Amino acid sequence: MRGAGRFGRVRRGPLRRGTDVAEFWLTPVTAVLIAVGAPAAGVAAAHAVQARAPVARGAHSVRAVLVEDPPARIGVDAAAAAGARVSAAVRWTAPDGSVHHGRVAVPASARAGARTTARLDGSGRLLRGPADPARAAAESIAVGVMATASGALLVLGAARGVRLLLDRRRAAQWERGWERVGPEWGGAPE
């Protein structure tokens, strides 16, 4: 029976206000947008990140040689820098024999002449970003979850804003109605 009272607010009648009807429909619309729209936004964001990942474009790895020592990390001791990665210049040879140069992330402890791996796309351009498909998938999942949560919060915030506007409009309607009827209810102050 509780639902019948809720649906009764949308029926025609002398006490029905447009703001009540709008608020009634605000709840299911918000629920649908959160249940369908927010996950759809998350999936779209995850697919966009996955499509931009170098692994999705047929990346391949080549052996490269560091041509310079990586820059020292200021304020980081040697023990902490052992696992850190920094950008350094490398050189590699393409299958056609041409020599190319670029910058890749290497361990901070690497020195000039050390061998590393550079990732290239199908046309031989150097790629940056996650090196393996698992990391690319993890990044796309993280972006998808954040987009879903952000979309849901945005919808909830918009619904709250609409509800505040409806309350403000109802208060203004109440004031106008009371200005009309109020003098008939009370006597003149003495």
Score class of each variant (00 low, 15 high):
R2S: 08
G3I: 15
G8R: 12
V10Y: 00
V10W: 01
V10S: 11
V10G: 10
G13S: 03
P14N: 11
P14G: 04
L15Q: 11
L15T: 11
R16F: 07
R16W: 10
R17W: 08
D20P: 01
D20I: 13
L26C: 12
P28M: 06
P28A: 03
T30L: 08
A31Y: 01
V32M: 02
G37K: 07
A38H: 05
A38Q: 05
P39S: 00
A41H: 02
A41L: 14
G42N: 07
V43Y: 14
A44S: 10
A45V: 09
A45H: 01
A46T: 04
A46C: 02
H47E: 15
V49M: 05
V49L: 02
Q50K: 09
V55I: 15
A56K: 03
R57H: 15
V62K: 09
A64C: 01
D69K: 03
P70V: 02
P70L: 09
G75I: 08
G75M: 07
A79R: 10
G83N: 09
G83F: 03
A84H: 12
R85C: 08
V86P: 06
V86Q: 07
A88R: 09
A88L: 10
A89R: 15
A89F: 02
R91H: 00
W92N: 00
W92K: 02
W92T: 04
W92R: 04
W92L: 02
P95N: 00
P95Y: 01
S98E: 09
V99I: 11
H100K: 03
H101F: 13
V104P: 07
V104R: 00
A105G: 04
A105H: 06
V106I: 03
A108D: 05
A108M: 05
S109W: 06
A110Y: 08
A110Q: 08
R111G: 00
A112W: 06
T117S: 06
A118T: 01
A118Q: 03
R119W: 11
L126V: 03
L127Y: 08
R128Q: 12
A134P: 01
A136Q: 10
A136W: 04
V143Q: 02
M146C: 15
T148C: 06
A149F: 15
A152P: 01
L153K: 00
L153Y: 05
V155I: 14
L156I: 07
A158V: 12
R160S: 06
R163S: 14
L164W: 13
L166W: 12
D167S: 08
R168F: 02
R169C: 08
R169M: 12
R170Q: 14
A171P: 08
A171R: 15
W174A: 13
W174M: 09
E175A: 14
R176S: 11
G177R: 12
W178L: 11
W178R: 08
R180S: 07
V181C: 13
P183T: 05
E184A: 15
A188Q: 10
A188L: 14
A188G: 13
